[in-house]
């Protein structure tokens, strides 16, 4: 499973955005995470916004978007929910 992680520019984040990536890496050991490259090569795109302005708001076939400080359980569940969705 290839997972593209995209961050917004981070001008004035309301929470620690990097925590989302840390939690994903901790909970999904078998996934291959990357930050650049073709979006089409990704099985999942994770959009990490620093606030609810959601500067990153593109929609992909499989994408999950974060814009506020949610707990580890919620982050993991949201990713699993998207992955369980049929294309």
């Amino acid at each position: 499973m290839k997972v593209l992680i995209r961050y917004c520019g981070g001008c004035n984040p309301e929470y620690l955005r990097e925590k989302v990536e840390e939690i994903l890496r901790k909970n999904f050991h078998s996934f291959e995470f990357f930050h650049s490259g073709s979006k089409t090569g990704a099985d999942l795109v994770v959009l990490i916004n620093g606030c609810r302005k959601n500067c990153l708001n593109e929609e992909f076939v499989r994408s999950v978007c974060f814009d506020s400080d949610v707990g580890e359980k919620d982050i993991v569940e949201r990713v699993k929910r998207v992955l369980s969705r049929k294309n």
Binding site: E14, C51, K53, N54
Partner: peptide, 16 residues
């Protein structure tokens, strides 16, 4: 300008 879309579909301004 820094407003955002809420789950209802309506937009609201940046709270801070």
């Amino acid at each position: 300008y820094e407003g955002f879309k809420t789950p209802s579909g309506a937009y609201m301004p940046n709270l801070l």
